[in-house]
Nucleic acid binder design. Structure first.
Lengths: 341, 341
DNA sequence: AAACTAATTGTTAGCGCTAACTTAGGGGGA
DNA sequence: TCCCCCTAAGTTAGCGCTAACAATTAGTTT
């Protein structure tokens, strides 16, 4: 025996239909913006929807349409500046287009973890996937697992098997290194990210090529791991060796670490040694001295990603690619080398 | 007339049932770990599931169980260190418990935007919501909008209307300020976050109280906005006035900005002025000099959040609260004031 | 005026799953 | 031995929605 005060279950389409004096199907038509509904009817239905505070049941809709209106975003180090902002861009673009965004983050980048995460998305029956894990393991996983839904990868090289949105990392590295070359530097070291990260590899490559193009011999390459700590160690090493006049760091955090190492070693930046970072995090402008770095449009990247995904979702896999160009931001950590003064 | 090569739709429960020689309900029972299934049957069903690569349809399941297995996470500045890591914690805990995580981020913190975002979650019929927007506007919105699903808020003060997981900000601020007091500082300024952010207000309060407790008169309070830039401006201002010997910054980024300002003004840290940050971002240890700061366990916070949400989802709104204690990390930006030397 | 259109609305049949009920077979206890 | 109950299944009836089709009305056309 039900009492008046029981929790009323939310209104369903039929309730709206009754109130508006139409069939539930007409309500559905209004909701889906079908053409053949008379203006008066539409209005009555909309009024009823408003009055009842009706909200369409997503599960029922998904069941019959076979689409979840959800896209999955896979990331690895979402607490870092770049990925976090890309996610933000994706998220906002998705919401604008009426999609929900489900996220999964990898605590370790291994084929097994990647497979798990993709499986998780399949369980959720997402309509599309964005992958923000520019790591080699990801590439392998993507070529073995054939995905049932469109997928766009951020930060991979152009490959017709993948739809890709990326920043031109080689160009970014070139910009940085060429700037140093133009200032007169001849011994330009590089602290890289772990080379199994696609971006890291591309920046190493850009650094090498630019050096070669300037007819400079290969200089010292130190492998970092994106952390300030690894930049610090690299800086210490370089300061001890004393054989370079400039350092190109593969991200701002490592540059920050290097900055401290140089300071400890009594090396002045930029008088004794020049430094260029990568990412242009908001803090970069407030380091001592302000960091010359490379700006990547992360949010823009996220938005483009979503755009491509929508395209692929509508037209099938495209294998298209969209490349954003980075921009060099010159601040105060770069100057001509000591010898050139 | 269907051809063999048509795209086969994914297997459904009935397909599994047929292959295993049971009814679809038995398959459902196996999947839901119901007790009354004989081991042999269970095994046969599991084998069939494996062979077909069967995956339960979430939409159908949600439709009948009236739960989406999804929780919504609302954030505002997900590109910042704290929120991003809290999200990470929530996300991992959720995935462990078999929940999907849908995120929405506010580009501006206004009642309207908040309402939109919550509406978005209701459309998705999430089972619970985690709010990582410790802002006053959020508090107002939450008290007006009565939510149909359990909600836990991160970073709010204890309030029986809300289930809350938070870091004890007042204590964190106390730790920082008391450390300075203990060193002998008597004029301790504070660059705060925007005071309509709950955390910022609590840190201001903690700063004030600790000062009062030490019988020190109120010192200068500068309103920042969390950005390095605002910390820089505050640092410049303080250096010009020259009437304080220590600065407590409400986050590490502002501390970083202040560090640059001090350096430009020729003030040595910590000899001329001491500085304490807040957050303990990984970079804090690699500033020049390494930053004394307050560590908050963000991931832990996220995990607790999820735990509380699950509890509320099972037992109805609890209004409980879970408070994590922060920890002072002393590095090299703090020393006795010049006069005390 | 009969018949054929087009526009608008209603009716029906599932989508794939779980909850609730029903049935079929064994053990014990009287 | 009969009855009751407990276990392991099967059957049935929706959850709330959309797609496909059927029905009604109004507006043409011959």
């Amino acid at each position: 025996m039900s009492v008046g005060s029981e929790t009323r279950r939310p209104p369903v389409m039929e309730d709206v239909a009754r109130l508006a004096g139409v069939s539930h199907q007409t309500v559905s038509r209004v909701l889906n913006a079908h053409p053949n509904v008379s203006p008066q009817t539409r209005e009555r239905v909309e009024k009823a929807i408003g009055e009842l505070g009706y909200r369409r049941n997503t599960a029922a809709r998904s069941l019959v349409t076979r689409r979840s209106q959800t896209i999955g975003v896979l990331g690895s180090d979402m607490s870092h500046y770049g990925p976090a902002n890309t996610l933000l861009g994706v998220q906002q673009a998705a919401r604008d287009k009426g999609y929900f965004v489900s996220v999964a983050s990898l605590s370790e980048v291994t084929p097994a973890a990647i497979k798990d995460a993709l499986e998780y998305f399949m369980m959720q029956s997402v309509d599309g996937i964005v992958v923000i894990v520019p790591h080699e393991a990801m590439f392998e996983s993507l070529s073995t697992i054939s995905m049932a839904v469109p997928l766009v990868a951020v930060g991979f090289g152009v490959d017709e098997r993948l739809s890709v949105a990326a920043v031109n990392q080689r160009m970014g590295a070139s910009l940085a290194v060429q700037h140093l070359v133009d200032l007169g530097h001849a011994a330009i070291a590089h602290v890289s990210g772990p080379p199994d990260w696609i971006d890291a590899a591309a920046r190493i490559d850009g650094w090498r090529r630019t050096l070669a193009q300037a007819e400079l011999s290969d200089s010292v390459l130190i492998r970092g791991n994106w952390s300030a700590e690894s930049g610090y160690r690299a800086g210490l090493e370089l300061a001890a060796a004393g054989n370079v006049t400039a350092l190109f760091a593969a991200n701002d955090q490592m540059a920050l670490g290097a900055l401290r190492a140089f300071s400890e070693a009594g090396l002045r930046v930029p008088q004794d040694i020049s430094l260029v970072g990568y990412d242009d995090q908001p803090e970069a402008a407030y380091l001592v001295p302000p960091l010359t770095t490379v700006n990547q449009g992360f949010k823009e990247l996220g938005a483009r990603c979503m755009q491509m995904l929508l395209f692929d979702m509508a037209n099938g896999h495209s294998g298209a690619s969209s490349v954003v160009n980075p921009r060099l931001v010159v601040r105060s950590t770069t100057a001509p080398p000591p010898a050139a003064r």
